[in-house]
Amino acid sequence: MKAQVITITSGKGGVGKTTATANIGVALAALGKSVVCMDADIGLRNLDVVMGLENRIVYDLVDAIEKRCRLRQAMIRDKRYNTLFLIPAAQTRDKNAISPSDMIRVCDEIRPEFDFILIDSPAGIERGFRNAIAPADMIIVVTNPEVSAVRDADRIIGLIEAEEKDPVRLIINRFNPSLVKRGDMLTSEDVLELLAVDLIGIVPEDESVLVSTNHGQPVVLNHNSLAGKAFENISQRLIGEEVPWMNLDGKSDFFGRLSRLIRSGRS
């Protein structure tokens, strides 16, 4: 078994990197895959909170890199899926505590034992970002359908291209079909046309994401949530399954939306 290392990044902060990492991790584990989620946001750790594992942290990534513990000791097993692990970031250090080669070394050490290693990148284009993408086999850029987030995503994709990191996939998060319909939000076509990378999922704006984040229960665990379903679809695409796109284009008629609501309510 040789894990695929996927780094989730965005450039701009607050677009949903950590949410995406936690949810894709949980969804992959639910599909029977062994997954490590690694928080590379040294100094501003969040992934542990979103995954609801905050109170189990003993050692962190920096402890493992600086050999105060073995890497295994820094890995926290998820309380819901026993093939899902978290390596938390250090809260008391900063991005300069680790280097790109440390990240490559850590990933190489655990690659043989897992199917996926998901790295939650910090925002920005500096050291922390370079640490996070160094070991990546695939990079997922998360953006919102919003001008400033797309602009930053474009910048990040340019930097990723310059590092010759392939392939790049895009998640459009917090997509609001009714705003698009009113012409007040960028459409997915607008975003894709500008960024010119392959889409791996569109996640609709969904209150349940916020609620579940606050409870440390990733939204994929909530089967009535459209956003949760979207993350599940992304995970299936990651393991090579063909999943039809959710109808979120904002152009659907009332009956289309109604039937979708009924369907999601039933499942």
């Binding site: 602009r151 474009d154 910048r155 994709i157 340019g158 500008l194």
Partner: peptide, 24 residues
């Protein structure tokens, strides 16, 4: 190639781009 946000070209002479010039 397409110039993405953050790319900057400063040159004496003319420039021909085959690709887009993105905002930024």
């Amino acid at each position: 190639k397409t110039l993405r946000s953050g790319n900057k070209i400063v040159t004496k002479g003319h420039v021909v781009i085959i690709g887009d010039v993105n905002p930024g």
